[in-house]
Write a protein that binds this DNA or RNA. Sequence first.
DNA 1: TCTGGGGTCCTAGGACCC
DNA 2: TCTGGGGTCCTAGGACCC
Length: 422
Amino acid sequence: MIALVDCNNFFCSCERVFNPTLEGRAVVVLSNNDGCVIARSNEAKALGIPMGEAAYKYRQLFKDKDVAVFSSNYRLYGDMSQRVMNILSGFTPDIEIYSVDEAFMNFGQFCNIDYREFALHIKKTVKQWTGMPVGIGVAPTKTLAKIASHLAKKNPQYSGVCVLSTQSEIIDALHSIKVEDVWGIGRRLSGMLHSFGIHTALDFSKSSESWVKQRMTINGVRTLKELNGEKCFNLETKQERKKSIVTSRTFGQYITDFTPLSEAVSNYASKCAYKLRKEKSCARELSVFVRTNPFRHDITQYQESKTIELPVATNSTIEIIKYANQALREIYKPGVLYNKAGVMVHNIVPDNQIQGDLFDTIDREKHNSLMKTLDGCNDSIGREKLRVLAQGFSRQWHLKNEHLSQCFSTSIKESIIVNCKK
DNA sequence: TCTGGGGTCCTAGGACCC
DNA sequence: TCTGGGGTCCTAGGACCC
């Protein structure tokens, strides 16, 4: 059996843990730039606030209904996530951290246990130790565990835990789930399935393999088999090396000049380099992209990207910033109202398996030790305090986040620095 | 006025190899 | 009139996930 532990309304719950007055109140968390609604408490869902909608459309409703609005505070959420995952890892090392707020756990190794009792115990422990409410679904496959956790949240009588073990329990569950709510079936495929009269997970589970293969490729077949109790997705317990890393942002205001655009791109490049070093990886390719606001039909649209192959795989901030700017110069067009840019690194290799270059002019040892010092400083005194000059200080591109909560659980060192300065 | 960010996998088709 | 068989690699586009 496989369990899926899923934090309830994760970002909202993180805000609540440190601000109990929010209990019982509608809470929403907005995306970067306070753009879209990306998390809602149950009370906010009940008010009909949809997921992913533009926040400005709901300003009045927020005011009228006294909704607590937060900008996203990813430091806080990342730290809370780690705490929850640490606790789960204490129950079994056989765990896959699937996303910031979800983990699969292998229950197969436990003999003679009552799955429901065990899951309730996990749920209670997480709540007690971190304040985070979770729902748990237990079933023979990952896809069914997803369905079980969905049911655990929707039906109060389950008290947050739903176990699907017998055939009849599974059939009842499949009957109650819409096909578009099945893991792996998105908007396009569910639309197609509806047109064939397939509306519930149970309808879909009865489809023939060849029919599904033809219309939904091999992934559809895997989902089909999983719904019928056959494991196709294994637990990925060890973290694989990332195949690509992206840092991109929508700007708080439009940018036209090269210099601030270059500063923004340099900052994203620096972030990519930092992420690479944390993964002990280097990249052999880098892309930069820029674009205008696609929602503004009144302005000339422009969107371009440029990919550069690096002579030697690297994770040096200095080098990556240099190539990012080289790429940016090739796609920069004056007079354009840019509203987003990003840097992507790919063709990633382990940092100890790098193909050298006979004619390399860079002292890589020196870069490495400089980067170690850079990270050491920034990890202890606060992010990006020490930076490459190209990253600039004007921050014309900085994000709008007018409703940011404190970094309750991670800001101690930074506040010490501030106090020392005072 | 105001609409996020970061990933993965699969397939078809083209180019190329012997 | 008639033109094989088998394979790899790359890319763009589409689909999905959180």
